[in-house]
Design a protein around this nucleic acid. Sequence first.
DNA 1: ACAATGCTTCGGCTAGCATCGAACTATGAA
DNA 2: TTCATAGTTCGATGCTAGCCGAAGCATTGT
Lengths: 224, 224
Amino acid sequence: MVAALVGDPARANMLTALLSGRALTATELAQEAGVTPQTASSHLAKLEGGGLVEPEKQGRHRYYRLADPDVADVVEKLAGLAARAGHMRVRTGPKEPELRRARICYDHLAGDLGVQMLDSMTRQKLVRRRKQEIVLTEDGKHFLAQHLRISPEMLAHPRRPVCKACLDWSARRHHLAGTLGAALMKRFTELKWAARDATPGSRVVNFSRAGERHFAALFGPAED
Amino acid sequence: MVAALVGDPARANMLTALLSGRALTATELAQEAGVTPQTASSHLAKLEGGGLVEPEKQGRHRYYRLADPDVADVVEKLAGLAARAGHMRVRTGPKEPELRRARICYDHLAGDLGVQMLDSMTRQKLVRRRKQEIVLTEDGKHFLAQHLRISPEMLAHPRRPVCKACLDWSARRHHLAGTLGAALMKRFTELKWAARDATPGSRVVNFSRAGERHFAALFGPAED
DNA sequence: ACAATGCTTCGGCTAGCATCGAACTATGAA
DNA sequence: TTCATAGTTCGATGCTAGCCGAAGCATTGT
């Protein structure tokens, strides 16, 4: 029975954490639920079996998201009933705004700006996307060479792809990984458009005023 | 947690039995759930504590009914999800055929006829569906104005969408909610095509002979 | 190659809870 | 009153399922 799945407190916590629409890793969900990773793994297997969540593998991470809007709808309504019965749940607030905006994911740009960049590149036909696959177009090569002094040779690597879609945890969209994603981040740093936060262990990326302007000129959001 | 209450099979059976809107006695619910009266009593106390059901004492009987339409809605949607996951409930036999055929879901039409209507509207291109989203087409606006005297202005609402997919519990498909779903049901009632069952608390919708004919003319099933 | 990280599987422990038998209260009928 | 029926409370039992420690894969990074 599906309701039994939602009934367990640990699983309920996971589902409410996923209500934001973001995809979360198994360990993050374990923390949200306050259980060890082993336990969380078991819960997630059950949720998946019940069709409530869907996994997406990404490297050695496993991102989970709600399977479909109906599930979110039911979980919300259930939470509503629970609230009315006096059983209010603590609301998870927005954690760190600057972390959502721009951060390092491995070696490339993630967060809202990372997502915006990939969106813009797609719109400008610098890359072509088909499902998870991304390829650099001829236009894209010219664009990179002209504006950022990035040549195709710099992107060659025996084992790593040039372009790769990487799931973003703050926005629930993809951003650009691969050697191109890394090269772009490296160039932004060299040009002093952006720098990783000084705090050790922090993944936040701070853009300078000028950097933000230049970035927007190249990869600004869609204008409606 | 409220979901845990619905999670237990015995309690879930009781709640689905109550979905008809009728009030049932404790012993009847015990039979529905397939447990002894003692066990049922304990379950009912819990459901009452969680605000899901409300008792009404009458002589030496205790009638239980669902506490309010929101509860019915959540239980239905939960059952819908369960059905989709293949974990179809054993007990969900055609207990009440007329309930499966046509009933009120908040303020719009649900059940087989509700699903059929949305299907037909999609097929006739009166609405366009993209995933969960439904939009009224120009054809649809003309159709509504011509056959049902429903104008787009009547559907405007600051916060409520015109069209919305709502998961149906008996059929495991979607039917039409939103201001359009409500307006259609209202018009059916005004035209005396259909009327809510007289039994207090019942959610059954009865179509008249003529009403059924008119409905079929507009939203009849696909002919193969 | 090796180590580190993310996640899963396995085994055993434990707590919670659904279940029922038996006894108790309350309403209604003779 | 006495009996019958509806429903509850109590106590004992047994099963399920959540939980964690330890160990096993898989992927990535040095």
